[in-house]
Computed example of a mutant assay.
Amino acid sequence: MPPTEAHPGTDAPPDTGTATEPEPGSGPVNGSENEPGAAPGADPGADDTLDLHLSDELVALLAAGEYSGSSDGDLLDDLAAWQPAATAAGSFRLVPVRIDRDLPLIARWMNDPAVAAFWELEGPQSVTADHIRAQLDGDGRSVPCLGVLDGTPMSYFEIYRADLDPLARHYPARPHDTGIHLLIGGVTDRGRGIGTTLLRAVADLVLDHRPHCTRVLAEPDLRNTPSVAAFLGAGFRLSAEVDLPDKRAALMVRDRALRHVL
Rank of each mutant, 00 (worst) to 15 (best):
A218I: 06
P220L: 11
T18G: 13
A116T: 01
D204F: 03
H170F: 05
L238I: 11
G17I: 00
V187S: 02
V97G: 09
C145H: 03
A19M: 06
W119F: 15
S68D: 06
P113Y: 01
Y156K: 06
L217H: 11
L198D: 07
G31D: 14
E5V: 02
L121Y: 15
A63H: 09
R200P: 01
A86C: 00
L105V: 04
R192L: 04
L207D: 04
R174K: 09
W109I: 00
G31F: 05
T197V: 02
I132V: 15
D246P: 00
E33L: 13
G147K: 08
L94I: 10
A218F: 04
T87Y: 04
A114P: 00
F92C: 04
I132F: 15
S239T: 12
T20W: 14
D15Y: 10
V95L: 10
P24D: 12
L164Q: 14
P13N: 03
G37A: 08
L198G: 09
D204L: 08
S70E: 12
T214K: 10
G65N: 10
T87D: 05
S239H: 08
F118K: 05
L76H: 03
D15T: 03
E21N: 09
R248M: 02
A6Y: 07
C145P: 07
D177C: 05
H212S: 08
P124N: 02
E33D: 15
G233F: 04
A114D: 13
S126I: 01
E33A: 15
L52H: 13
D221V: 00
S26I: 01
G140W: 13
L146T: 08
R141F: 03
G41N: 12
A240C: 07
H260G: 11
L207M: 07
P84W: 01
R133C: 02
S227P: 04
D208P: 00
G140A: 05
Q135M: 15
L232T: 15
V127R: 13
V97K: 07
T188I: 06
A38F: 01
A6I: 15
L205S: 14
L244C: 13
I106D: 06
G186Q: 08
Y67L: 11
D51W: 10
A88C: 02
L50K: 09
S227A: 15
V202N: 10
H260F: 00
L146E: 07
T188A: 07
T16L: 15
A257M: 07
E66Y: 02
G140V: 01
Y160M: 13
R256Q: 03
A107Y: 12
S71D: 14
N30I: 09
G123M: 00
A230L: 12
A63T: 01
L62G: 01
R192G: 06
H131F: 15
V143Y: 01
P175H: 01
T128C: 14
Y160Q: 14
D204C: 05
L222N: 07
L232K: 12
P28I: 12
